[in-house]
Design a protein around this nucleic acid. Structure first.
Length: 946
RNA sequence: AGGCGGGUAGCUCAGUGGUAGAGCGCUGGCCUUACAAGCCGGUGGUCGCAGGUUCAAGCCCUGUCCCGCCUACCA
C-alpha cells in the first residue's frame, strides 16, 4: 500500500484487491439492528436468471443500482441492496433438457424427481456465474442475504401467496384459449410470446357448398382447416348473400360446416372476403365461435402433432401437416392458388418455436381487483415512477390488463399447491408440500396438481418474500417497503406491475417509494443487441480487455471470423480506430460511462470509444493523485473545509462545493449523467487544469525560500515565513479537496477511489473504507462568490494571452512580455495578487500592470479579458499581414452581433415589455461588443508596427 | 391501426422561453518533472420542415415529413 503509484492507471491490478477487502470488512452488510437510529435504504435487485451470464443490460442495471446503494450507504442509511437469483422455470428447464439431449436422454425417461435433482445440481455447478460477474462489477450487495427463488423459505411464501389468493377467489382454474409452446410443452403467458413480422404464404382453397358451388377462403395456416367449424362472411357482402345459412362440406372429415355472417371477424376487402373459422386454435375465431355457439374442435396434441380429430392426417407434425393438407387439397382440385404474405408470427421467447393457440385448462389470477389499487398507488403518488413519462404506459397497461395465466406444464418450479381427491373429486389448496388424505372423504387417493407456477408469480413476491414473509420477521418490518426499485423499462409489465399488485395486496402498501427505469442498451448505431445481428458485447470483455477475435466469437457465434468482425465494426463505428481489440478499460471506466448516459432517452447507444475516454479520466484521477501525493506529506486533512486565505484555495473550495452539490442533486433526481458530468468537469477542467497548475509555483517556492532562509536577512525570512504559510495552506487544501472529491466519486468509480483514498492523508477517525465514509455535498465546499469572480478574471487574462500566443504561433516554451491595462482598483488589483499565476501560466518574461489611458506599446497584439486590455509584445515574431486579416475577421463577427442587438433594442415591443433586467443585460452586451470593436480598431493600429 | 418517444456540431448526446453546450472526431502547436491515456489553442450548428403564440422560441401550440419502441392486428 505504501509503495509508489505506477505511472499509469492499471485497473486490473487494483480492482481485484478491493472487492475482497470490502467483503472481509463487512462493508456491504445491512445491519438490521434493533434501535438503529439510521433511516433505511432498501433496493431489491432485479433478480437475474440463474441460467444467465452478464450482458450489457445487466451491467447497466447493476451499475445504476450499485451507485444508488453506495451513495445511500455513504449518506448514512442502513442500506440493503438485496441480491438473489431467479430459478427461471422455462429457461432453466430448456437449458438442462438440451444438455440431456446431448447425452441422449429425455426428461421423461429420467422421471420428474430425477430430472429436478439434475436441475439442482446444474444450478449448483453453473448457477453462480452471474453472481461472480456481478462481483467483478463491484456490486455492494449484502451477499449473506442472497435469496434463490426455489429456497425452502421462499417456496413456502410462494405457496402461501397462492393459497391466500385462491381462498380469496382471486385465483381460479378454467379452460381457456392460451398460447402453447410445443417445444417446451407448456402454456405461456402472452408476455412470454414475441411476435415479429416474417415471410409467409396466404393459401387459398375452396370449400364445396352443399347443394352446389363453392366458397373460397384464405389462410396462412392451412392445417388448421382440420379444426374448422364455420366459414364466415360479412353480412353486407353481396357476393355471398346467396350463401347465408347454407353449409359447406369438409373435404377430408365428412363434416357439415355452417356459413355464418360476422361483421367483427370479416373484413370484406381482405382476401376473398370469406374466412375459415377455427375456434379452438385462433383467438379471433375463438371469439367468433362464442358469438355463434360453434363447435370447438382441437386438432393438436401437446407436441404440436395432429390428433385423432385430424382423421388421416393424425400423427403429423403441424408443419408436415401443413404441407400434407395443401397437397391433399390440390389433389382434390380445391386449391385456388397462393401468394407471398408478410405476417406476424408469434414465437416463444424461450424456445423460439412458433406458439399455437390451444384450448387448455389452466390456473389464472384475476387481475382486475389487484390492478386497481396498484394503479391508484401511482396516481396518488405513493409510488413515483421516474422518468415520469412511463406513468402513462403503466396506467395504460394496468387498465387494460388481462387475467394472468400462472400455471406452467414444467417440472422445474414451484409446484402448484392444489390437491385433488380421486375418490370424491374434492379440490384442496393448502400451503403444504404434500397432502396424505382427502379432507372430505379421507381417501388416500390424493394427487397434487402436476403443474408449476409461472416464474413471474414467484418473483412478484420478491420485495417481501426475501424478508421472511409470511412471518413477521425483523427484516420484514424494517426492510419493507423498499425505497427504490430500479430496472429496465422493458420489464415494467412483466415484473414491476406485478410486484405492485402483490405487494399492495399482501402487505397493504406499495412495495417501493420510487420506480426508477433505465433505457435499453443498444449498439452504437441504435440497433438492439442480438446474436443474429452480431452486435452483442460482453461487458467483461470491456472490463478485462479482449481481442476482436474473442469479442466477435461471442457476438456472432459460429460465423466466419472476418464476416463477423465486419458486422461488429459496422455496429460500432468507433472501434474502427481500435487496433486489435478492446483494452482493459476496467470496471470503473465502464461504470462511469454507463452513468454518463441520460436516462431520458429510450435507447443508450453504447460507444466503446466513450468508455476509452472515461478510462482516460480514471488515468487522470490516478495521476493527479500521484502528483498530489508528492506534496501532501504532513498535510492536516480535516472533516470540514479548511478556512483559507489565498485566492486559488478559496476558489477551489468554492468550486468543490458546487460540484459536490450538483453530484448530490443528480443522484437524488436520478440524473446520473448530470452527476458524473459535474464531477468530471470539476476534476479535469478545474482541479487539474487550473488548481494543480496554480499549486505548482507555490510548492516550488519552498525550495527557493529555504535557500533564502540561510541568509540572515529578515525580509527574506518573513517572505519565507509567508511562503511557508501559503504552502502549508495549499497543501492542506489540496489534501482536503482531493480526499473529498474521491468520496464524491466513489459511488461511480468504487475501485480507483478506494485505492487512492487509502493512500491519502485522511481526517482522524475515518472508517476503514471509503465506502463507509461520508458522501460530500454542497456544504463540503466553501462558497465564495468573490473568489470565483476574481479567479474568472485571472482565467480570462491567461486564456486571452495564451490564445494570442497560440494564434501567432509563438513557441510554447518561449517567454513573452505581457502588459495588462485596466482599472487600478478593479481587475488590476486582482492581477497583481495573481501575478505569479499569470506569469507561470502564460509564460511571461515580464509582466507590466498599468492603468489604461497612456500610450500603448507598439507592435503588440491586443486582446481583451473582461474590461482588461491584454497586450502581448510580439514585435518581430509575427507577420503584420496575417495579424490584419485576423483582426478583420473578428471585426466582422462583432459587427454582426451589434446589428442584431441594436435591432432588438430598437423594437419598442422589446424595451417596453421585456423584463427590465433583460433589457439592461442586452444594453450591457451591446456595450461590450461596441467596446470590442473599438479595441479591435486600436489593435489594427498597433499591428501595423509588428 | 393505436399509444409513447425522438430528429440539436462530422458522430454520440445534454439543453430550465432571453443570440446554442459537452465528449469524441477534425485541426495548429508542444515529449512543459502528475498524466502523449497528456498539455496549450482553434474549427465546426438555418436546432427535420411549414405555420402560429410571444417583445423574444431549440424550448410553448398546430400541421407535416422522417426514425425508433410498445400494444393490437387481415384470415
Amino acid at each position: 500500500m505504501t509503495e509508489e503509484l505506477s505511472k499509469g492507471y492499471e485497473p486490473a491490478e487494483i480492482e481485484k484487491r478491493w472487492y475482497r477487502y470490502w467483503q472481509d470488512q463487512g462493508v456491504f452488510r445491512a445491519a438490521c439492528k434493533e434501535g438503529d437510529p439510521r433511516p433505511t435504504y432498501v433496493l431489491p435487485m432485479p433478480l437475474p436468471n440463474v441460467t444467465g451470464s452478464l450482458h450489457m443490460g445487466h451491467a447497466m442495471m447493476c451499475t445504476i443500482e450499485d451507485v444508488l446503494a453506495r451513495a445511500h450507504r455513504m449518506m448514512g442509511f442502513d442500506t440493503l441492496y438485496q441480491p438473489g437469483t431467479d430459478h427461471a422455470g422455462i429457461a432453466t428447464q430448456v437449458v438442462v433438457e438440451r444438455q440431456l439431449k446431448r447425452d441422449g436422454v429425455t426428461r421423461q425417461e429420467l422421471g420428474r424427481e430425477e430430472f429436478v435433482r439434475r436441475v439442482w445440481s446444474w444450478k449448483e455447478a453453473c448457477g453462480s456465474r452471474i453472481v461472480e460477474q456481478q462481483k467483478v462489477l463491484g456490486l455492494s450487495c449484502d451477499w449473506d442475504r442472497s435469496v434463490f427463488t426455489m429456497d425452502a423459505g421462499y417456496s413456502r411464501a410462494v405457496r402461501e401467496a397462492f393459497v391466500r389468493l385462491y381462498h380469496e377467489g382471486l385465483i381460479y382454474r378454467a379452460k381457456r384459449l392460451i398460447y402453447w409452446d410445443c417445444a417446451a410443452r407448456t402454456v405461456l403467458s402472452n408476455l412470454e410470446v414475441n411476435s415479429e413480422e416474417e415471410n409467409g404464404e396466404l393459401f387459398e382453397f375452396a370449400y364445396p357448398v352443399e347443394g352446389g358451388g363453392e366458397i373460397v377462403v384464405a389462410t396462412t395456416r392451412p392445417e388448421t382447416m382440420l379444426g374448422d367449424t364455420a366459414v364466415a362472411v360479412h353480412p353486407d357482402d353481396e357476393r355471398y348473400t346467396a350463401l347465408h345459412g347454407k353449409f359447406v362440406v369438409h373435404p377430408f372429415l365428412e363434416r357439415r360446416i355452417p356459413i355464418v355472417t360476422d361483421a367483427v371477424l370479416v373484413d370484406p376487402k381482405f382476401g376473398t372476403g370469406a374466412v375459415k373459422v377455427t375456434p379452438a386454435h385462433d383467438f379471433n375465431d375463438f371469439e367468433t365461435g362464442r358469438r355463434h355457439q360453434l363447435e370447438m374442435i382441437e386438432i393438436l396434441d401437446e407436441e404440436g402433432r395432429i390428433n385423432d380429430a385430424g382423421g388421416s392426417f393424425r400423427g403429423l407434425d403441424r408443419f408436415e401437416a401443413r404441407k400434407a393438407v395443401k397437397r391433399a387439397l390440390e389433389e382434390k382440385g380445391l386449391a385456388r392458388g397462393h401468394k407471398q404474405h408478410r405476417l406476424m408470427i408469434p414465437r416463444s421467447e424461450r424456445t423460439g418455436t412458433v406458439v399455437e393457440p390451444m384450448l387448455s385448462t389452466q390456473w389464472f389470477v384475476k387481475t382486475e381487483p389487484l390492478a386497481k389499487p396498484a394503479l391508484e398507488a401511482v396516481r396518488e403518488g405513493r409510488t413515483v415512477i421516474i422518468p415520469e413519462e412511463w406513468t402513462k404506459t403503466y396506467e395504460h397497461w394496468m387498465t387494460n390488463i388481462l387475467d394472468w395465466c400462472v400455471s406452467r406444464q414444467l417440472w422445474w418450479g414451484h409446484r402448484i399447491p392444489a390437491f385433488y381427491c380421486d375418490a370424491c373429486g374434492h379440490t384442496m389448496v393448502r400451503n403444504v408440500e404434500a397432502l396424505g388424505e382427502c379432507e372430505a372423504c379421507a381417501s388416500v387417493k390424493v394427487r397434487q396438481d402436476e403443474d408449476v407456477l409461472d416464474t413471474w408469480f414467484s418473483s412478484a413476491l420478491w420485495p417481501f418474500a426475501t424478508q421472511g414473509w409470511p412471518d413477521k420477521t425483523p427484516e420484514l418490518l424494517r426492510y419493507y417497503p423498499a425505497s427504490d426499485l430500479e430496472t429496465g423499462y422493458d420489464i415494467l409489465f412483466f415484473w414491476v406491475a406485478r410486484m405492485m399488485m402483490m405487494g399492495i395486496h399482501f402487505m397493504g402498501e406499495p412495495p417501493f417509494k420510487r420506480i426508477l427505469l433505465h433505457s435499453l442498451v443498444v449498439d452504437e448505431t441504435g440497433k438492439k443487441m442480438s446474436k443474429v445481428v452480431g452486435n452483442v458485447i460482453d461487458p467483461i470483455d470491456l472490463i478485462a480487455g479482449a481481442s476482436f477475435e474473442t469479442v466477435v466469437e461471442k457476438a456472432l457465434p459460429g460465423a466466419p471470423a472476418d464476416e463477423a468482425l465486419k458486422k461488429f465494426k459496422k455496429a460500432y463505428p468507433s472501434t474502427a480506430s481500435m487496433g486489435k481489440g478492446f483494452d482493459a478499460y476496467g470496471t470503473d471506466a465502464l461504470r462511469f460511462t454507463l452513468c454518463s448516459y441520460s436516462p431520458q432517452s429510450k435507447r443508450i447507444a453504447l460507444s466503446p470509444k466513450k468508455i476509452e475516454g472515461y478510462r482516460h479520466f480514471c488515468n487522470k484521477i490516478w495521476n493527479a493523485t500521484r502528483f498530489a501525493l508528492g506534496y501532501l506529506e504532513g498535510a492536516r486533512v480535516t472533516d470540514a473545509a479548511p478556512v483559507v486565505s489565498s485566492l486559488e484555495n478559496r476558489w477551489i473550495l468554492s468550486r468543490l462545493g458546487v460540484a459536490c452539490g450538483a453530484a448530490r442533486e443528480g443522484l437524488a433526481a436520478f440524473r446520473f449523467d448530470d452527476a458524473t458530468s459535474a464531477l468530471y468537469r470539476f476534476f479535469w477542467n478545474e482541479l487539474c487544469d487550473w488548481y494543480l497548475e496554480l499549486c505548482k509555483p507555490i510548492f516550488a517556492s519552498t525550495n527557493a525560500n529555504s535557500d533564502a532562509n540561510s541568509d540572515a536577512n529578515s525580509d527574506a525570512n518573513s517572505d519565507a515565513n509567508s511562503a511557508k504559510a501559503r504552502r502549508d495552506e495549499t497543501r492542506d487544501t489540496l489534501g482536503y479537496v482531493l480526499e473529498t472529491t474521491l468520496r464524491a466519486l466513489h459511488p461511480f468509480v468504487p475501485f480507483i477511489t478506494e485505492e487512492l483514498w487509502q493512500r491519502l492523508p485522511r481526517p482522524a477517525g475515518v472508517p476503514s473504507s471509503i465506502a463507509l465514509a461520508a458522501l460530500p455535498d454542497a456544504e463540503s465546499g466553501r462558497a465564495d462568490a468573490e473568489a470565483e469572480r476574481e479567479m474568472a478574471i485571472l482565467q480570462a487574462v491567461i486564456v486571452a494571452a495564451r490564445t494570442i500566443r497560440s494564434e501567432r504561433e509563438v513557441h510554447p516554451g518561449a517567454q513573452v512580455p505581457l502588459v495588462l491595462r485596466g482599472e487600478a482598483n478593479g481587475s488590476l488589483r486582482v492581477c497583481e495578487a495573481g501575478r505569479v499565476a499569470i506569469e507561470t501560466l502564460v509564460k511571461t518574461s515580464s509582466l507590466v500592470l498599468e492603468a489604461r489611458g497612456g500610450e500603448r506599446p507598439r507592435g503588440a497584439a491586443l486582446g481583451h479579458a473582461a474590461e482588461l486590455e491584454v497586450l502581448v509584445l510580439l514585435r518581430g515574431i509575427v507577420e503584420a499581414g496575417k495579424e490584419r486579416d485576423r483582426i478583420e475577421r473578428e471585426l466582422k463577427k462583432a459587427q454582426k452581433s451589434i446589428e442584431a442587438l441594436e435591432k432588438k433594442l430598437a423594437s419598442a415591443g422589446f424595451t417596453e415589455r421585456a423584463p427590465p433586467e433583460v433589457v439592461q443585460e442586452t444594453h450591457a452586451e451591446l456595450a461590450s461588443h461596441r467596446a470590442r470593436v473599438t479595441l479591435l480598431a486600436e489593435a489594427r493600429v498597433l499591428a501595423e508596427e509588428l
